[in-house]
Design a protein around this nucleic acid. Structure first.
Lengths: 217, 217
DNA sequence: TAGATTGTTAATCGATTAACAATC
DNA sequence: TAGATTGTTAATCGATTAACAATC
């Protein structure tokens, strides 16, 4: 139950377990770590360690875990049950997609306001979120009580807008721009870098094609 | 230069180095691993190891690395210089954002075609990419010579559409849906799960707020 | 009881970091 | 030459996996 002691790789897997558990038919009352591991292609001891770190209820020998309890424990542990307010800067295509994405609610995040500098967008709503003039940020943001700032702008403006957010109460930046952000020690930055993901895929693909090619020669 | 021997964490950092190097003013001819490490908040030995794994040219004592050569080597290693064709299924907000994202080109990926089942979208273009009827997938896809399939649909249809892609020559799936995909051993799946990222942020944030709270009591 | 399953303790594996020799 | 910097070899650290005892 000590949330700070969980390892980073372990924490990454918890939402995966949660979404898998939610796909199970409601008739499935209990599930074993063995079954979860097999379904997701993971080591079963790893699954058990992960679950025991996140779940207070624990499982029972021979029976496994109560699916309902496990879902509740994971949601609780991951903080899905208390709402975290966020603001978003940069309502381009990606920003717009995030604003209209309904899945964040299930994770306990609500985007309270969005900001842009395009007069065509200012004053309109996407996904129920109002788009404000970025110039009004210092006035509007503090009212939102938001700690998370979602940055979906071009890399050129990323650092300046990051600084602006930090000046007005934002503590964690979810950075969708490719820019590297310079922040004080106590500020959280999470980079969502599509180029990194793409590099992983290309690399694996190239390796696979090389291997296949090698086979035939 | 042996691309298969690089570690996964190391590979993840390469695109970060690359984008940092590209932000440097053109007057910067050389740069030391020490400087890169300091700028990105990494260990300098780690940076040196990463660079020596990816760069054939290497650096020179006292001088550092040639920025130009390093950029070229990284682009070469990451496969940014040979075009990889991809197709995309599911032209919702996110799919549309990816179609209009111009940054993929710099990474050597081109989205050759998109597919959806919405008659309003079929026949139109986004970001220069034509949107086809998903029913035509078996006819259209093989002509594209694409190995990468980008999946931006709702989780319910993800597995079926994944299977469809694999039947028509796709070897790597970039999965933006929350569904866990079941695929044969030789197929690459890369999951882009926003819930995972959000969980990391909420967790770090909660930990930080707890710590701050503890200080004051 | 026997067997499936849990949770923990120990062993292995891989990545990071530290120490050091080489070089311009 | 002296010092900054590279690249490598050795030590540390953390995560995964294997072995095992506990339990329903």
């Amino acid at each position: 139950m000590d949330k700070s002691s969980i390892s980073k790789p372990s924490l990454r897997r918890l939402p995966v377990y949660l979404s898998y558990l939610k796909t199970l038919p409601p008739s499935t009352r209990t599930i074993s770590a063995t079954a979860v591991a097999a379904a997701l292609g993971l080591n079963e001891v790893q699954v058990r360690k992960d679950l025991s770190a996140a779940s207070s209820s624990g499982g029972r020998p021979k029976m496994g875990y109560s699916v309902e309890e496990l879902i509740a424990d994971l949601e609780e542990f991951l903080g899905y049950r208390n709402t975290k307010d966020a603001i978003l800067i940069g309502v381009g295509r990606l920003g717009g997609a995030l604003l209209s994405f309904t899945g964040f609610q299930a994770c306990g995040m609500r985007i309270a306001a969005a900001f842009d500098n395009d007069p065509m967008k200012i004053g309109t709503c996407i996904g129920g979120v109002q788009i404000h003039d970025i110039l009004d940020f210092p006035i509007v943001c503090p009212h939102m009580g938001a700690h998370i700032g979602i940055l979906t702008t071009s890399p050129e403006h990323a650092q300046a807008l990051c600084d602006l957010m930090l000046e007005h109460g934002i503590l964690a930046i979810w950075n969708f721009s490719t820019a590297h952000l310079e922040v004080p020690d106590n500020i959280i930055v999470h980079n969502e870098n599509l180029a990194v993901s793409l590099a992983m895929i290309s690399h694996d693909l190239e390796e696979m094609l090389d291997k296949e090619g090698g086979k035939n020669s």
